[in-house]
């Protein structure tokens, strides 16, 4: 696992803060590591903070979308939080959305949403 992103496990939720300088290789490693952690920790959700990302291009967007699909298969809901407004506008222009992810403005919004759900 690279230092480009750290995974924390809190209240049944895997928290990932994606770092600004994450490379394609790092994000592929992250995808694999997260899938393993969901099962090992019996996580019910994954919250990915992408606030540090100045851009999300089609590659990173595709990996984020895949990650959400994999999480869903492993019975964990994915939240993408902290998306910058300019990133959201650019993603729409690229014709991309993140169909399996919930988005939340911030980590606390995502956790609030999750706390509304009973623990499995």
């Amino acid at each position: 696992m690279s230092a480009a992103s750290a995974i924390y496990f809190v209240e049944g939720v895997l928290l990932v803060a994606i770092q600004e300088d994450i490379s394609d290789t790092d994000i592929l490693d992250l995808q694999e590591a997260l899938a393993e952690r969901i099962v090992r920790d019996s996580a019910r959700a994954v919250v990915m903070d992408i606030n540090a990302l100045e851009i999300v291009d089609t590659f990173v967007g595709r990996i984020l979308a895949q990650l959400a699909s994999v999480s869903k298969l492993l019975d964990a809901q994915t939240y993408v939080v902290g998306m910058r407004p300019a990133v959201a506008m650019t993603l729409v222009e690229l014709g991309m959305d993140l169909p399996e992810s919930k988005t939340a403005l911030s980590l606390s919004h995502a956790l609030q949403d999750l706390r509304g759900k009973p623990l499995a």
């Binding site: 394609d24 100045e54 851009i55 999300v56 291009d57 089609t58 590659f59 910058r84 407004p85 300019a86 990133v87 506008m89 650019t90 222009e93 690229l94």
Partner: peptide, 17 residues
């Protein structure tokens, strides 16, 4: 501005990749 920069840098990322 931020949107201008994000749009262009995203394009550079696509083409560079």
């Amino acid at each position: 501005r931020s949107v201008k920069k994000t749009r262009f840098v995203t394009a550079v990322s696509e083409i560079g990749r």
